[in-house]
């Protein structure tokens, strides 16, 4: 009886937490489907919002997409394509470089390995704001401003946090497995590609999901490096849209576009949820 009671209490607390977390999302969804007058009223007064609009205005979504940028549809499609390209390249590069460096730090014996690992961990202490200006100056000298290169190329040099995760995971793999692969004919790259990477699926998932969410939502990087409208990512396009349609009479469009921007992250989390949690768990236990 007592156990059932505590279970109910746990469920109630979890449900309350979930409701609290989902409230902004629900609010955005409802406002995005309201008529202009109702959407404006719901923004000003919480009580004016309905559980779900009686007459959902799905055209708000298409209108919002059409209105991005100076050319109808073009602005949205450009931003979407840029976001997909930058995110795809960055996620691929991050998984590739972090797993490779993690393998080297975990499995390749070389002089100075411990020192390099410590230096790499040290870079985790540096806030990005410290390196922002020097990085900008370097990329400007290279002529990379207003290209996606400053957003993508650094990912090929790894990320200290994910390298650490890969390194910890790979260090747990029995040495005999690596030795067996080497006797079976694999060099280090072969061991990494054929044995380690397939075993690192939880870490790959967590790296991919985190990187995807960060890059997809990244505003500062594209704001600094991408100046032309046709090179803007969705985050930049959304900001421009907000400047243009930020008033109460257009809030339904802003919410619609914000939701559209969020959809890939929500879908990705739902698809990769199991591996994501598994990866977090393994990082915590094995780390």
């Amino acid at each position: 009886m007592k156990r059932r009671g505590s279970r109910l209490l746990t469920l109630a607390l979890l449900a309350a937490g979930a409701a609290l977390m989902l409230f902004p999302l629900w609010w955005m969804l409802v406002v995005s489907l309201e008529t202009p007058s109702n959407a404006g009223a719901a923004t000003v007064e919480v009580g004016a919002i309905s559980a779900f609009p009686a007459d959902p205005q799905w055209s708000n979504w298409t209108e919002a997409m059409r209105a991005v940028g100076t050319v109808e549809w073009q602005g949205f499609l450009d931003a979407l394509a840029n976001s997909i390209l930058v995110t795809f390249l960055t996620v691929t590069a991050t998984v590739f470089s972090c797993s490779l460096v993690g393998y080297a730090l975990a499995r390749v014996r070389f002089r100075g390995r411990g020192l390099l690992f410590a230096v790499m961990l040290g870079t985790m202490m540096l806030p990005p704001q410290v390196t922002m200006i020097p990085m900008f100056l370097v990329f400007r000298e290279l002529g990379w401003v207003d290209t996606i290169l400053p957003l993508v190329v650094p990912a090929f040099f790894g990320n200290a946090f994910f390298i650490f995760m890969f390194r910890q995971f790979m260090a747990q793999v029995p040495e005999a497995l690596v030795e067996a692969a080497r006797l079976d004919g694999c060099a280090h790259l072969g061991v990494w590609w054929r044995v380690m990477l397939p075993m690192c699926r939880p870490v790959i998932a967590i790296t991919a999901v985190f990187t995807f969410i960060f890059v997809w939502n990244d505003f500062l990087g594209p704001l600094i490096y991408l100046h032309s409208e046709e090179k803007a990512t969705l985050a930049i396009a959304l900001n421009s849209f907000r400047n243009q349609y930020g008033g109460l009479e257009d809030v339904q469009y802003l919410m619609a576009l914000s939701l559209i921007t969020m959809i890939p992250c929500i879908l990705l989390f739902l698809v990769a949820q199991r591996q994501f949690i598994e990866g977090l768990g393994s990082g915590a236990v094995k780390g």
Partner: peptide
């Protein structure tokens, strides 16, 4: 080691967990 024409059986089997038995045996 891979060029010495030897094969080794390890104490903890060292089978690749993501591959089937067939793929494990075909691996070398």
């Amino acid at each position: 080691g891979k060029d010495r024409d030897i094969a080794m059986v390890f104490q903890n089997y060292a089978l690749y967990p993501h591959l089937s038995v067939r793929q494990n045996m075909a691996f070398p």
